[in-house]
Design a protein around this nucleic acid. Structure first.
Lengths: 177, 177
DNA sequence: CGGCCGACTGTGCATCCTGCGCAGCTTCTG
DNA sequence: CAGAAGCTGCGCAGGATGCACAGTCGGCCG
């Protein structure tokens, strides 16, 4: 549920501005994007309601936090044991995320650990799950392309959904009060 | 650089509180965690300076934004062509992230697309890179364990690094002002 | 074609937070 | 033992937030 129409240019502009000026408030955003403060508030609320914006996390760099080793593990699991595996994975703190994928009931998960030894231990924990038949893992050496979503969203941005929004994008706007 | 000592309980508490009360300010956080406002400010600044906190979202659900198809692609690339591949990958909006991994000069990347057809197209774009020798991909069916980092950080949280921090965690604290 | 409705704009306020500085303690370190 | 570092409490001024509302503009529908 919730994926309706694509975002428009204003939405993406807001998202971008929000990403750059980390702690910008509505007023600040309205200045940056050149729309009224109330509009900013409304758009953000809509984005959150639509589930597009799921939070404002702090983004944590696990590597900087002392967990410099990351690996991607492919699990081959027993038929219909997804639920069991899910539970087991959730119980292991080292598992950062996991996805069910196409293939022979495969699961791809990402784990982090403090060191190679700790990683080894985590992998052992993974295999302890009775539903896991086999596992193969590759260690991440470096981050080639850091996580990003804006480039993709930009490709989907309709010129301007709102009727008058951003019409005079370049013109000096007299903001609120 | 930057990965020094592990976080302490207060740091994790702050991170957790920030994650839940999305738009909480310093004052709000100080109430939640029971420390002085100035302390909250200082800790967060330190976390950012240490590179542990790299930003404050917004966290975008690409699926909700209309890109419901995600896949993990393993690329086998030509010797020493990492740089070239990096550039090519960055140029493709559909690439959400990419890591160099152990193996025969492999790269694991994650791509998102609006539909299976669009994904196909993105994969074609990937293979267009002259440095890519071969690629295999698995489609993500569902998110078993959604992205998380706090469970891991909690395992590393020293009881309380700051000398007096959180000493009377339960006691009613008279906050700022 | 005219009217309705949703989206955006500008204001106006009262309230509350933020950013900054500072003095006083307490604990850890050299 | 002295200095450094980390927290606590406070105060203040500028400024943001939350909320409300009237007025427009452009699109959709009968």
């Amino acid at each position: 549920m919730a994926d309706r129409r694509a975002l428009d240019a204003l939405d993406v502009a807001l998202l971008t501005a929000l990403r750059e000026h980390r702690r910008a408030g509505d007023l600040e955003l309205s200045r940056i994007t050149g729309v009224a403060r109330a509009t900013v508030t409304a758009r953000l609320e809509r984005l959150e309601a639509a589930g597009v914006v799921t939070g404002y996390g702090p983004d944590v760099d696990v590597s900087a936090a002392g967990f410099g080793v990351q690996a991607f593990v492919t699990l081959e699991i027993a038929q219909g044991a997804i639920d069991a595996v899910t539970r087991d994975l959730e119980a292991i703190p080292g598992v950062l995320e996991a996805h069910a994928t196409t293939g022979v009931g495969d699961v791809l998960c990402r784990v982090a650990a403090r060191s190679h030894e700790a990683l080894q231990q985590t992998l052992v924990d993974l295999n302890r799950s009775s539903a896991v038949v086999r596992s193969t893992s590759v260690v991440a050496l470096s981050e080639i392309v850091p996580w990003r979503t804006l480039p993709l969203l930009e490709t989907a941005a309709a010129p301007s959904a709102g009727r008058s929004a951003m019409r005079r994008a370049g013109a000096p706007v007299t903001p609120d009060r």
